[in-house]
C-alpha cells in the first residue's frame, strides 16, 4: 500500500473538518478526491501528509520528513513561485529530497518537463509565464520528485481544456507505471473519465468510495453536490455532464 489512513481526524479548533476517514491507496490507482467546497479535501490531504496536526493513523505522517518526501510528492493548491528562477531550476526543486544521493537529477528534470510539455520553456523565467503555464511547471516540479505517490490539490483548476486532459492523462500514466495519484478535483466529468476510483467527501466524512460508475449515482449527486447530471457510457468512455442544481439547500 502506498497510503493507509485509519480514522484520520483533523480539527480546526474544536470543529472536526475531517472526521474518522479510513482508506488505503494501492499502486496503480488514479484516485479522484471529490466533494463540494469546504468538504475537507485539502485538510484530508494535508493531514495525511502530516502537514496539519491530526489524530488517527496516516502511514505518511508516521514517516520522517525525509522518508516522506521520497514516498509522496505534494502539490499545494496555492501556486507559489516567490522568485524569478528559471523553469528548469523550479522543476529541479522537486529533487530536493534526493540531492546528493547520486541519482540522475538532470534526467528527472528533463523527463518531468517533457511530460508536462514544457521542454522548450526550460530556460524561461518561471514568474514571467502565464498562470496556466506556471501551474504546469509546478506539476512538473512534483513529477520530478519521482515519489511513488502524488497528492495534488486541484491540479487542473485554471488550465485550458487540452492541458486539463493532458494532465489527467499524465496522472493516469503514473498509475499505470506502478505509482498512484490522489488528486482533488471539481471537474466531475474529467474525474469520471480519467480516474480509476473516486473518493467522495462531504462535511469531512467519507461518504462514497469506488469506481466512477458506481460512485456517481443520482442519489449521491443530489445528496452531496445538490445537482442532477447526465451520465452515460459511450465508445469514448464515461460521459458526465452536470445539468442543473436542485436547490435542496436553498441554493444561493
Amino acid at each position: 500500500m502506498l497510503l493507509t489512513l485509519q480514522d484520520l481526524t483533523v480539527r480546526r479548533g474544536l470543529c472536526p473538518v475531517v472526521e474518522a476517514v479510513s482508506l488505503t491507496v494501492a499502486p496503480g490507482e488514479c484516485v479522484g478526491l471529490i466533494g463540494p467546497n469546504g468538504a475537507g479535501k485539502t485538510s484530508l490531504l494535508r493531514g495525511a501528509l502530516g502537514l496539519l496536526p491530526a489524530t488517527g493513523h496516516s502511514s505518511l505522517a508516521a514517516m520522517t520528513p525525509d522518508a516522506r518526501a521520497r514516498a509522496a510528492a505534494w502539490l499545494p493548491q496555492a501556486r507559489e513561485i516567490a522568485w524569478g528562477i528559471s523553469v528548469a531550476h523550479l522543476v529541479r526543486l522537486g529533487r530536493t529530497p534526493h540531492l546528493g544521493r547520486g541519482l540522475d537529477d538532470d534526467g528527472a528534470v528533463t523527463h518531468a518537463l517533457g511530460r508536462m510539455g514544457l521542454a522548450q520553456f526550460r530556460d524561461r523565467t518561471a514568474t514571467q509565464l502565464s498562470g496556466g503555464e506556471q501551474a504546469r511547471a509546478l506539476i512538473a516540479r512534483a513529477l520530478a520528485q519521482e515519489a511513488p505517490l502524488l497528492l495534488a490539490d486541484e491540479p487542473i483548476a485554471g488550465l485550458d481544456p487540452a492541458a486539463q486532459i493532458a494532465t489527467m492523462r499524465v496522472f493516469a500514466r503514473l498509475a499505470e507505471e506502478g505509482g498512484a495519484v490522489i488528486a482533488s478535483l471539481h471537474d466531475l466529468g474529467l474525474a469520471a473519465r480519467h480516474c480509476t476510483r473516486l473518493i467522495v467527501l462531504s462535511a469531512g466524512r467519507l461518504v462514497a468510495d469506488g469506481p466512477p460508475r458506481a460512485v456517481l449515482t443520482p442519489d449521491l449527486l443530489a445528496e452531496v453536490f445538490d445537482i442532477r447530471a447526465h451520465l452515460s457510457d459511450t465508445p469514448d468512455g464515461l460521459v458526465f455532464q452536470p445539468l442543473d442544481t436542485l436547490h435542496h439547500h436553498g441554493g444561493f
Partner: peptide, 20 residues
Amino acid sequence: GRGLDALTLGEDAAASLGIN
C-alpha cells in the same frame, strides 16, 4: 541554502520536500 531554495514554492511545499 537548500531550505531557502525550497521555500520558493511556499512553506507547505517546502515542508513536503522534507525541509524542517
